[in-house]
Amino acid sequence: MKFLKKNTFILSIISTIVFFVLFSSCHKRIELKDNYEDFRRVVGPDGGTINFFEYNPENDKPEIIVSIDFPENALDSLTVFNMYEFINEGVYIDILRLGRRQNSKFLYFVPFYESYGYNEVNSNSDTYHLSIDFNTAVEVTYKLISDYTPEFDAKLFRIKIPATNEWGTEDNVWINWNYQGYPDGYDIIDLTYLINGRWTSNNDWGSTDFNLDNWEEVTNYTYNTFENTVSFQIDNTDYMYVMAKVLTN
């Protein structure tokens, strides 16, 4: 009996350890501080808000630079938006202020349908700007990151991007594709010529002097001084936007 008690004692110890380990140390699933919904740039008929962030190593949290609020049914299907800032200095912006041209940042979006998705590299795909008309207006809030603000006489402009075949089958805006098979903004020369007016509906690509024929002032916007943001509504994806102070001769 003496030995049996010892055995029982050993088995009890082992059993206790086993149960303790099993029931006290199972995996605890993490709770996310931010969900995918906070970081996605795909939206469908249900609507929702897309925030575009900019990572700054000096800040703990990424900064929202563009926010797009899609009402319900503004879109008919799942759509992905890429957002780009295009820096250009070949335009008439503040040219005369310091006797030199200033860099300006232009904001634009490259949409594509979610079902269209990924393209194999070098595949024959539609590589033109996709024009999407929203069923209801969509509000864009843009944090101004340049020195140009309405407080210093700058204005909000939109610059036309022709829809596919709108200016002719040979005058469509090309989409660049990167080595991974994903869209990577519009062709830089196309954008430059749209901005500086060397390419409009009335002339051939790159065949005229600089002008602002493609520029249109957006008057209906609100400026938040505290946040340094402008909010405006868009009906389609056929424009790029810029807050600029334009001085022409």
């Binding site: 970081f39 996605r40 740039r41 962030f53 900019e54 992905v80 780009y84 998705g117």
Partner: peptide, 18 residues
């Protein structure tokens, strides 16, 4: 599917993770 299980993240590189 190749177009399924895809994350479209909204950073400045328009990162898409498949």
């Amino acid at each position: 599917d190749v177009t399924d299980y895809v994350y479209y993240f909204s950073n400045q590189r328009n990162e898409t993770v498949r």
